[in-house]
Write a protein that binds this DNA or RNA. Sequence first.
DNA 1: ACCGCCGGGTGCC
DNA 2: ACCGCCGGGTGCC
Length: 918
Amino acid sequence: MSRDSARGYCQYNICRGERNYSCFSSPDFYSSLGLEDFLSVGDTSGAEEDTDLAILYGTLRGSVVGLRYYTGIVNNNEMVALQREPNNPYDKNAVKVNNVNGDQVGHIKKELAAALAGIMDNKLALIEGVVPYGAKNAFTMPVQMSFWGREENKEAVLDQLKRHGFKLAPPLKVGSECGFGSKWISGRAGPSYSAPVHAAVQLTTEQLKSEFDKLFEDLKEDDKTCEMEGAEAVGTPLLPHQKQALAWMVSRENSNDLPPFWEERSNFYYNILTNFAEKKRPKNVLGGILADDMGLGKTLTTIALILTNFQDSKPLPVEKITSDKFYELMEVVKLTNVFFNLPTTSASSYNCFMSIIHLAALENFQTTVVSYLQYQVTTYGPSSHLGGEVKRNPNSNCFCYDQFEQHIHQDFRVNIYVYYGSDRSKDPSVLSEQDIVLTTYNILATDYGVSDSPLHKVRWLRIVLDEGHTIRNPNAQQTKAALNLEGHRRWVLTGTPIQNSVKDLWSLISFLKLKPFTDREWWHRTIQRPVTMGAPGGLGRLQSLIRSITLRRTKTSKVKGKPILELPERKVLIQHVTLTEEERQIYQSVKKEGKAAISRFFSEGTVLAHYADILGVLLRLRQLCCHPHLCINASSSFSADNKTSEELPETLVSKMKLVLSSGSDEECAVCLESLTLPVITRCAHVFCKPCIFEVIRSEQPNAKCPLCRNELRVEHLVECPLEEEIDSSNGKKSDREWISSSKINALMHALVELRRDNPTAKCLVVSQFTTFLSLIENPLKESGFAFTRLDGSMAQKKRVEAIHCFQSSQAGSPTVMLLSLKAGGVGLNLTAASRVFLMDPAWNPAAEDQCFDRCHRLGQEHNVVITKFIVKDSVEENMLKIQNKKRELAAGAFATKKPSASEVKQTKINEIKALIDL
DNA sequence: ACCGCCGGGTGCC
DNA sequence: ACCGCCGGGTGCC
C-alpha cells in the first residue's frame, strides 16, 4: 500500500509567532538567525545563570503586605517566590510575593522592596522566601528571606541593603526549603535552623555523575519487572526487557497515583517539598522518561505502547486487513471517492479513506505526536549563510517513518503521517485523522505561535519526544513549543538523561508537567540546589523523583539473571595497504609540500590562523590514501604562494568549506565530537552551531574564538551544510578514465574472497568520501556484485528502498552496501550485514563506532567482522594513533573535566604535528 | 493654636 | 488593624 499520506504538508513557512522580547531592541535579528535558542533573549529570570556557584549570603526577615487584595494563600512554612514588578504604577520598586502555584499573595513592604529592587534587577542575588508563620493573617505576614549569589556579588548586596538600613543575619541557619536532613520524608519541612551551611559542600562533577548513575543502578528487581505482551498489531516480537518496559509504560499511563512528593491530607493535597497545599488533586504525568541505553529498543517499545494502550490497556482500534475485509474496503473506497469527489485511481484517495475509518474509530481522540530529532536533518540556509532564507530539507524523515512501518504488523493499517509544518492551504483537521503524527522539534518550534498550527491545536492522546535530551535549553523555542503541546500522556525517550549535571533533567521534568517543577525556581530550590550543595536528603529526593517516573536499563543490565542483550561478537581488524609506486610518488610530493607549508606556519606561529589550510593538506593526504582521483585540486594552493601568512578571511572560509564538503568527518573543538550543523568563523575555524553559540552567549558581549581568540561575531559565522545534506552532483565522475587504487584492490580482493567463502554474506563498505564510493561502484559491477548505496545526498524514497533492498534475505538481493560514514541516523538498522569494510579512518573514533553499531545491534545474528583499511606510512597510521589516544582518554576519564580551551588548542597543535610527522 | 490633643476614617504596592 | 498614620476638629482649669 502506498504511504503517500506520509508526505504531508510540503510547504515550510517560517512563522515566528508572537513573542515579546521587550528587553531586546531587535528580536527579529536574533530570531532570524535562530539565535533565540542559544542566547537567553528576553529571559527575565536571570541570576540563575551559574546557580551552582551560588552561596548563601544570609537571611532577613521582612513582611508581606496587602494580603487582603489577593487570592493566593500560603501555609506556614510554605515557600514563596519573590518577583519584581517594575511596572507597578504605585512603586517602581514593587516586589510581588507569589505562592508555589504562582498566585499572588501580596507585596513586599515598600521600604524593603526599595532595597531589594536593585539587587534583583541587577541580578546580584537570588532572593527566596518562606513564610514561617502567620500564614492565616488578614493583612500582613512575615517572610523569611534567603539571599543567594556568587561570592563576588556579596559585598554589593550587603552594601545595598545597608544603605536602606537592613542587615542580613549570618547564614548560620538554613531555611526549610533545602530540607537538609531527611525530614522531607515526613513532610512538614518546618524551618530547620540547625544545620550549618558550611556542611553543604559542593559535589564535584565526577561525584555527581557517579551519584546519578547510582540513581538508576540501584533499581532492584521491583515493580518494573512485570512483563506485558504487545498488541497483535505489533509486528516485531518483543524481548523480555521490552515487555517489561511496555508493562511499566502502560501502568504509568493508566495510573491514578499522585505525582511524586504529593500527599493527601484531610481533603487537601500537600506538596511535601514546598508545603504548598490545594484542594484540587494535582495531575500526575501519565508517562515519564524511558531512558534505556541506545540500542535497547526504546522506539520499538513506544510503538508497542501506542498500539497496545489506547484506553484502559485496550489496543488502538486499527483495522485488521483480511482478504474479505480488503474486498469490503475496496467497495467503500469507491463510495468514499464518489463522496469526496476524489480520483478513484490515486493512492492518496485510498489513504484518505483509511483516515476516515480511524477517525470514526477514534471518536474524539487524537493520538500521538512523536517528535523526532533522531532522524532529523535540521534546517539550513541555501546560501549557507546564517540568517539567509531558511529552507527545509523535504526528505528528512525517512527513517523514523520506516521504523514505524517496519514494527507494525503488515496486516494492520495504522495511519502514520509525517508533518512538515503548517500550510494554510490545507485543512488542519488532517492531523486529527491520524493515528500517529511524526514531526521534528524544529517544525514543532516553527509552528509554535502560528495561530492556526494544527500541531498546537490538537488535543493529543500521547506526546512522545524521541531523543528528548536534546530539549536541554530551557529558553529554546523548541522546548517551549514541546511544553505547550496539549496532551496528558507524555513521554521522553533518551539514552542519556543526564549528560553533565542535574540541570539536564529539568527540561525533561518540565516537559512532563510535573507540579511544581515546571517552574524552574521550585525545581531549583527543592531538588537541584540540595543535590549540588550536597545536602543530605537532596540526592534522596532526586532519586525518588527519578525512580517514580523513569525506567533505565543499560546494555549491561540483566533481566531475570540474564544479560539484557546478547550481541554476537564483534572484531575489528586492521588491514594495512601499501601504495603503489605512482601513488606513493603523488602522496609524497603533496606531503612534502604540505609539510613545508605547515612547518612554516609553525615557525611563524600562525598554525591556528592557517587551520583551514592545514585541514586541507591533511584532507588531500587522506584522500590520496584512498584514490588519486579523490583529490580534485591536488595542485596545492601553496605552490605559487608568495603572499604573507595573512590570508583573506573569505579565502580561508572557502577553503574550510571545501574540506567540509568533501565529506570529511571533522571535529568541533568545543564539544570534541563530530560536527553537527557546522559553522565556520571568520578566522576559519569550524564548530557546531549550538556549541559556538553557547560560547558567544556566555562570553558576550566580547566573545572570542576558542581556538585562536580572534573576535567572534554572529554576523560573521557562515553555516556550512555537511556533505550529505547537499545534493551532491554525482554526475561529474566520468571526467576521467576510471582507474583502480591500492585500497580499492585490497577491498575487492577481500570482497571476492568473502563471496567465495560465503556467497550470501552481506557487507557494508564505508567511506567518508562519497566520490570514493562512486569510484568503488565500477569494480563492483565488473566483478558482478549486486550492491546498493546509501548516502546523505539521496532522496528519502531512495534511501528507504536501498535499506529495504539490502536488508532483504531474498536470493539476488544486494550483498554489498556502499555507505557514507555519516549517512542516516542513529536508528538506522543494517543488521543484514555481518562484515564492515571501513575504507578510511575518521578523526573521531566514536563516529566509526556509531557506524559499526548500525549492523552490530539488536537483530544481528552473526559475529561481526570489521576491517579497517589503513595505508602504511601515511597520515592514516598517524590518525589511528590519535584515535587510540582518544579512546584511552575516553575510557579512563569517564568523569574527568572537559579540557580547557587552551588545552584543546595545544592538543590540536600536537595532533597536527603528529599527523604530518613534524 | 504657625501648637498639642482628641477621636474618626482608614489601610499594599 | 485590639495597630499606625492621616488630617479635621478643637482648645483654661
